[in-house]
Simulated scan of single mutants.
Amino acid sequence: MNIKDFMIADVITAKKNMSIKELLELLVTNRIGGVPVVDKENNLLGMISDGDVIRYLQPKGRTVYDMYALVLVSEQEDLIHKLGYAIDHKLEKVMSTKDIFTVHPDDKIENALAIFSKYGFKKIPVVNDDSKVIGVVSRGDIIRYISTTLISKTEEQ
């Protein structure tokens, strides 16, 4: 089975100049956890996920001042403050640009399985021969394929 047989071809993408707020609206509206970031020609620039946003919003470490501030300000107010500060930041500050793996539509399912199992990604962009994003494959797509196709064949025997 090839990637093109079960990839999502109606891919939702983001642009690097989108704000975190626009990304969150995109993710929530479409009930997805991440998207490829592309340029005007649909070339892959990076990936962005809900996990990237969460890691961006989480303070790196606490100083003595931070600990004192936590006594004065609730955690919720601290998060609201951080959101207010970061919500307009552009995706290019947050998106992953290194160690981005892709698959080709003619690749076998095993290529995607190997990437998912080794790196723990949730989605892999599918690119054509011109390196344009033409789809995505998610862990859920693989599981649905295994469930509906492979298990059904096993039960028929």
Rank of each mutant, 00 (worst) to 15 (best):
G34D: 03
L150R: 04
L70I: 02
N17Y: 11
L113P: 06
D5A: 01
I115Y: 12
V103T: 04
V53H: 02
E41N: 11
K118Q: 06
K16N: 11
R139V: 11
L150D: 05
Y56D: 07
I100Y: 09
A114Q: 15
M7N: 05
Q157W: 14
G140N: 02
M47F: 05
D52Y: 02
L79E: 09
T154I: 14
E77H: 12
I20W: 08
K16T: 05
P36A: 06
I32V: 03
I151W: 05
S131L: 09
K132Q: 15
N30A: 08
D39F: 04
L70K: 07
I12P: 02
E75Y: 10
T148E: 15
I80T: 10
I151N: 10
T29K: 15
M7S: 05
D107M: 01
S74I: 00
G140T: 07
H81S: 12
G135I: 01
A9T: 15
N17Q: 13
A14C: 01
M67G: 00
V103I: 02
T148A: 10
K21S: 08
V94T: 07
H104M: 08
P59F: 01
K4W: 10
E92Y: 15
T97E: 11
I12D: 10
A14H: 03
G140P: 00
Y145Q: 04
S96W: 07
K123P: 01
F121T: 01
V38T: 11
G46Q: 05
Y65E: 15
V53A: 05
P36V: 10
L27D: 02
A114D: 15
L113Q: 08
V136I: 15
T13H: 06
G33Y: 06
K21P: 00
V53W: 00
K16L: 04
I151H: 05
G61W: 09
Y56G: 08
L44C: 06
A9F: 02
I87G: 04
F6P: 01
V37I: 09
